[in-house]
Design a protein around this nucleic acid. Structure first.
Length: 595
DNA sequence: AGCGCGGGCGCG
DNA sequence: AAAGCGCGCCCGCGCT
């Protein structure tokens, strides 16, 4: 814990303040200068920049952007001249505001990030600056946040309207870089010692992803409006029918559905763990296909259809329109450290979760004139990581065979065994369930779970699972070894990736979590590395979106073929793992969808 | 009215 | 002995 009582905070509101700030900037100090920003909202393309704050462990300065922007630019110029390292908390966010509003090019090679430090230091605990500060720096440091919250509520102010000179606003804004400097001081060396390679990877990933966010993806508004109309018309009509025929006003209300089922005299066959009637996709699909009552079949079919339509419209299409900027660009937010495993997530909108098989939704995205989309994904990367870490000879051999000329796709090979038939077509509908089955088994799932994933009866899956386990005994050995290793750590079970990243499991759930954590976690690190490779190959300006093991790029039409080869190279690694890590991509002619 | 939570469903 | 993992968004529902 540090003592913050001597910290001095200042709001720049005159020439003398600005001069004092520049003097402070030139002083020698321990550690980096820390920077933070305040904005009117979360989206740099829709919201304004309001304040830029600088600080170290003793001093914090708040500079109003709209009045004293020149001072901000001067500070950045000086920082650049002096080759000064700067620290930010979630700089990926602030750099975007500084880039969009102040035209500042982030000095990526001279930057540290306390949020990355926090996530690597403790992947389970909250990594917000306030949480960290109260835990690591000074319990009372964030007490004033309450005054700001109350003041904003009382005056009905938002982040866009709270007056700059309202003391709780500027004071706690000026304090943020001070807290950041302290967190840097406390965590920096430790994280570099324990997980230095993972930390460097995260900083580089921040840079690449910031550029992707800035570039954005273009939507076709007319196309989206038309698609919304179609889903809406269907939904409206179906809801009228549901109400008139079954007194259902909401297709999501299991209470209403239960009453409808009872009214039809239909047995309820599916229940949640808590014991409530369950009407999810699995249950409704069963009723639709297997109920003896045609009315039940019909109702289930309409419920599934209207839910699908509402999901497409509400979760995706309408969000696209709401989140687009004036140039019809969507700058989704990429969280480079979202999952406890180190995986990234994408929000606003959640572009990693667009329906894979429904061409309508992805079709909302169109390349800029003269460009095409290409996408490239890693081939079975988690299964290959499984082969690598387990060193299972059978699994390594299976991949070598799959990679050999004329070799059969890995999952097709497994499918052939399960269905006792030579399956070679990657489009075979049985491949996806088999893929789920392989991952289910890899991560400690039982035969029942795997049967469900593959859509076959338990009796069919049980011997297949047995055979699978006999084929690749090293997987079980690996899970046992990792489970023991994690448990041996004590209170918080954890292991580390080859880059030093700490991967934690919940107590009692080590067996099913920790193997997944290592494989998912290192696959995520590998994937981040491929993004850096792509950027280093000069493709940074074409990169658009990371999707766990896939990268979407938007490239000039004439160069698409050549670039695709480079992308595949950048994403492959045939030397550093026990099986080759390979990648394959394709070019999409008109929209973000395969023809 | 706003919040948190679980259910449901989209992805890897 | 047996054990799927990680996310984000929308909805209904109970609570404040």
């Amino acid at each position: 814990m540090a003592d913050l009582s001597g910290v001095k905070l200042r709001l720049v509101e005159g020439v003398q303040d600005a001069m004092d700030l520049m003097t402070w900037l030139g002083e020698r100090r321990e550690g980096n200068i820390a920077i933070d920003t305040e904005s009117g909202g979360l989206n740099p393309h829709l919201d304004r920049l309001r304040m830029v704050q600088f600080g170290d462990m003793q001093y914090g300065w708040a500079v109003p952007w709209e009045r004293w922007g020149g001072v901000v630019l001067e500070v950045f110029q000086k920082l650049r001249q002096n080759r000064e390292r700067v620290t930010m908390h979630h700089g990926c966010f602030d750099w975007r505001f500084l880039q969009v509003h102040a035209g500042i090019t982030p000095p990526w090679s001279m930057y540290d990030d306390t949020m990355a430090m926090a996530a690597l230091h403790d992947p389970l605990r909250p990594k917000g600056l306030k949480h960290l500060a109260s835990r690591l720096v000074d319990k009372t440091a964030v007490a004033g946040q309450k005054a700001l919250d109350e003041g904003m509520a009382k005056n009905k102010w938002t982040w866009d309207t709270v007056p700059i000179d309202y003391p709780p606003y500027w004071v706690y804004s000026a304090l943020d870089p001070v807290l950041t400097a302290h967190v840097d001081h406390i965590l920096g060396d430790q994280v570099r010692a324990e997980a230095g390679r993972a930390y460097d990877l995260e900083l580089a990933t921040n840079r690449v992803c910031a550029d992707m966010m800035l570039a954005g993806l273009r939507i076709d508004k007319a196309y989206i409006h038309e698609a919304i109309q179609k889903f809406e018309a269907f939904s409206k009509e179906t809801r009228i029918w549901l109400k008139a025929t079954h007194a259902i006003t909401s297709p999501m209300s299991s209470g209403q559905l239960k009453r409808a089922w009872e009214a039809m005299g239909e047995d309820i066959l599916f229940f949640t763990d808590a014991g409530a009637a369950r009407f999810d996709k699995e249950a409704l699909t069963f009723y639709q296909n297997s109920s003896p009552n045609p009315r039940v079949q019909q109702l289930a079919r309409y419920l599934l259809a209207v839910r699908h339509a509402d999901k497409m419209k509400g979760s995706y299409l309408e969000n696209f329109l709401e989140l687009a900027d004036a140039d019809d660009l969507i700058h989704a937010s990429i969280n480079t450290l979202a999952a406890r495993t180190g995986r990234m997530s994408v929000t606003d909108p959640a572009l990693q979760t667009l329906p894979r098989d429904d061409k309508v939704i992805r079709g909302s995205f169109v390349p800029r004139p003269g460009f095409v989309f290409i996408s490239c994904d890693l081939d079975q990367v988690e299964a290959r990581m499984g082969a690598h870490f387990s060193e299972d000879e059978g699994m390594i051999a299976a991949f070598m065979e799959a990679d050999s000329p004329g070799g059969r796709d890995f999952f097709c090979g497994i499918a052939s065994i399960i269905y006792d038939e030579d399956i070679r077509d990657k489009k075979d509908p049985r491949r996806q369930p088999v893929k789920n089955t392989v991952y289910g088994s890899l991560y400690g799932g039982g035969a029942a779970t795997m049967a469900k994933a593959a859509g076959v009866p338990y009796e069919v899956m049980a011997p297949v699972k047995k055979r699978f386990d006999e084929m690749f005994p090293g997987l079980r050995t690996m899970s046992d070894r990792l489970t023991n290793e994690a448990k041996a750590q004590g209170d918080v079970p954890f292991i580390r990736t080859p880059l030093g990243r700490k991967l934690v499991a919940d107590k009692g759930r080590e067996y099913t979590q920790i193997t997944n954590a290592l494989i998912q976690g290192h696959a995520a690190e590998y994937f981040k590395g491929t993004l850096i490779n792509l950027s280093a190959a000069g493709l940074g300006e074409y990169m658009r979106l990371p999707i766990h093991d896939e990268c979407l790029l938007e490239v000039p039409i004439a160069e698409a073929k050549d670039i695709l080869h480079v992308v595949e190279e950048c994403m492959s690694d045939k030397t550093n793992y026990r099986v080759p890590i390979t990648a394959g991509g394709n070019i999409m002619e008109d929209r973000w969808r395969k023809m």
